Amino acid sequence: MRRQKRDMNSRAFDKGYQAGLGGRSQEDCPHENDAHRQAWISGWREGRSDHWDGLTGVSGVHKLRAV
């Protein structure tokens, strides 16, 4: 659990990926810090791409990292 809190860029990317995969807007980014915001948006873009490619549900499980 502590490792997640230390690596905020990785966590922001994962949360952005989940948001993009879920179809949420890019404007929903909760980060003010530029580095965290960039990581979140990168994850969001990848999530949106996977959403458009149909990698939702069971077909997209391989993209998620184990927590």
Rank of each mutant, 00 (worst) to 15 (best):
L64E: 07
E32K: 15
A35R: 10
E46D: 12
R65K: 14
D50H: 10
R65D: 14
G60I: 01
G60E: 04
G16H: 06
D53P: 03
A19N: 05
L21Y: 00
P30F: 07
G22I: 05
E32V: 11
W44C: 10
G54E: 05
F13N: 12
S49Q: 14
N33M: 09
D53Y: 15
A39D: 01
V58K: 08
V58T: 14
S49K: 14
R65H: 12
G16P: 12
G16D: 03
D7C: 10
V61T: 12
R24L: 10
G16Y: 09
A19W: 03
S25R: 13
S49V: 05
E46F: 02
A12I: 07
G57C: 02
C29N: 15
L21V: 02
H31E: 08
H31S: 05
C29A: 12
G20N: 01
W40A: 06
G60M: 01
D34Y: 07
V67P: 15
G16E: 01
D28G: 03
R45A: 08
K5F: 05
Q38W: 05
W52T: 06
Y17V: 00
V67R: 15
G57I: 06
D53C: 14
I41A: 09
A66M: 10
F13A: 07
R37C: 13
A66R: 11
E46Y: 01
G57W: 00
R65V: 12
R48K: 15
R2A: 11
E32F: 05
E46W: 01
Q38C: 09
N33G: 08
R3Y: 10
S25H: 08
R6E: 14
V67W: 09
K5Y: 06
R11G: 03
S42M: 07
V58M: 07
H51P: 01
K5P: 07
W40V: 06
D28Q: 12
K5W: 05
G22R: 11
S49H: 14
N9V: 01
K63H: 13
E27C: 04
R65E: 13
R65C: 09
D28W: 03
P30Y: 06
I41F: 06
G22V: 05
R2D: 08
D7N: 14
N9Q: 13
H36N: 12
G60P: 00
L64F: 08
W40Q: 09
G23Y: 06
G47N: 03
G23N: 09
M8C: 06
S49R: 15
V58G: 01
D53V: 07
G47S: 06
L21N: 03
Y17F: 15
L64A: 11
E27F: 13
A39R: 02
L64P: 00
Q38H: 10
G22Y: 03
A39P: 03
L55N: 07
Q4R: 12
G20D: 00
E46P: 02
H36T: 08
E32L: 13
K5S: 11
I41G: 07
N9S: 09
R45Q: 14
W44H: 14
D53G: 13
D34T: 04
H31K: 06
G23E: 01
D50K: 07
D50N: 15
S59P: 02
A39M: 02
R48P: 06
N9F: 00
D28S: 15
N33A: 05
R65L: 13
R2N: 12
F13H: 13
K15L: 11
Q38D: 15
E46C: 07
R2Q: 13
S42E: 14
P30T: 11
I41H: 11
R45G: 09
A39G: 03
